[in-house]
Nucleic acid binder design. Structure first.
Length: 268
DNA sequence: AAGTCTAGCAACCGCTTTTCC
DNA sequence: GGGAAAAGCGGTTGCTAGACT
């Protein structure tokens, strides 16, 4: 109650950071290390609030940051982790060295989310869009075998306090409130501690899928449906290790832009 | 060429969690 | 144990560059 704002708004600069401000912040942190963020702007001679300094450092100035678009492998990992963890961007980012939660969140919202929707996948639940509310029209076997990530998460639920296994905290409305039960937290922590997280999103792993039913669905999409989703799939760079790349020989398109960005933004 | 629209991303806001006294 | 401060986190906003008309 009555909490003080992180900084008084008057006399505090906002908006994009200048190169000079960046230099001040970087040189200060490199010489003094990360101390109390509230004190940083004053000590570094910046007219910013501490929160803004922390954000700038963690999202942009940290020397260990990778720049450029996410690689195909990274995107696969993001989708897979999102299926398990939901919008816990910091947890997802922790599994991608050199990437920030903000970067991953932005990439998810601007690239991956749209592609999944176009593919008929609900990005919040990782279920086919038609199946998000009603029981599966395709068939229960299809759902249970093809969308393992959601099932994995459903299993978590069934072990926890809610045993229905229908809805799942990958829903964005549930992410905003962090009331996950302790059991779920433990399970999530276990997931985070796993050395290798299996990539079990079916659309990312066609070649390893032995599921005939899923293959037939993909076949249907290829034969009957519009195929522009396939092109989008390649655009988003998810086809790196999939049959799509191998069979149709289309390269990932995210290399050039990443190279341009990284060359532009390598200030240090 | 000029105006409008859209996508992408950096930064901000406000809430929650953690830490300290 | 309780309250305040600091840090962390996720959602949202707003600016900018490129595409489109």
């Amino acid at each position: 109650m009555g909490r003080q704002p992180c900084c008084d708004k008057q006399g505090v600069k906002r908006g994009p950071w200048t190169a000079e401000e960046d230099n001040k912040l970087v040189s200060f942190i490199l010489t003094h290390g990360r101390c109390c963020w509230r004190a940083v702007p004053k000590l570094a001679g910046l007219l910013r609030c501490g929160k803004s300094c922390r954000l700038r450092w963690t999202n942009y100035l940290r020397p260990d940051l990778k720049r450029g678009l996410l690689t195909a492998d990274e995107e696969k990992l993001v989708v897979d982790l999102h299926a398990k963890l939901g919008n816990r961007w910091s947890k997802i980012a922790a599994k991608l060295p050199g990437r920030t939660d903000n970067e991953i969140k932005n990439h998810w919202n601007t690239h991956i989310k749209k592609k999944l929707i176009k593919m008929g996948i609900d990005p919040a639940t990782h279920q086919p869009l038609a199946n998000t509310k009603a029981a599966s029209p395709i068939g229960t076997t299809s759902q249970s075998t093809s969308f393992k990530s959601s099932d994995t998460v459903n299993q978590l639920d069934s072990k926890g306090t809610h045993g229905e296994g229908v809805s799942r905290p990958t829903d964005s409305s549930e992410h905003s409130s962090r009331n996950t039960s302790d059991d779920d937290q433990d399970l999530l922590a276990n997931l985070l501690l796993e050395e290798e997280l299996p990539v079990d999103e079916p659309w990312l792993n066609f070649e390893s899928s032995n599921d005939d039913e899923f293959s037939s669905i993909i076949g249907q999409l290829l034969c009957d449906g519009p195929t522009d989703w396939l092109l989008d799939y390649q655009d988003v760079g998810m086809g790196g290790s999939s049959l799509i790349d191998q069979d149709f020989g289309s390269p990932s398109s995210n290399l050039t832009e990443g190279a341009v960005r990284s060359s532009e933004e390598s200030k240090f």
